[in-house]
Amino acid sequence: MSNLSRDDVAHVAMLARIELEEHELDTLAGQLDQIVDWVGQVNEVAAADVPPMSHPLPLVNVTRPDEVRPSLSAEQALANAPDPEDGRFGVPRILDEE
């Protein structure tokens, strides 16, 4: 199995939307490399014909009737919002400045 470089960790952190500081990258890269190496031992098991298990219960398509039910008010839903505005969630700009 390939090992995880510092650049790999920085790239994956970007994908996960975590802005790591330099010193965090230094520590995490070493630890993650060791952990990835260790979890890679799952590949020692011959399992080509084994079906994957995503979940312990054999449940499929659990549905309920599509009925109107009481729900949170807009005020309740916005109570924990960092920047509520006019009954909506205020968000930073989503487009590039250019």
Binding site: A16, R17, I18, E19, L20, L28, I35
Partner: peptide
């Protein structure tokens, strides 16, 4: 941008173990 806010917030809001596992 929204993405920069997300990334900074997640860096500040999550501890080391959570970051390790999310990245893994």
């Amino acid at each position: 941008s929204a993405e920069q806010v997300m990334a900074s917030s997640r860096d500040a809001g999550f501890g080391d173990e959570v970051k390790r596992r999310i990245i893994l």
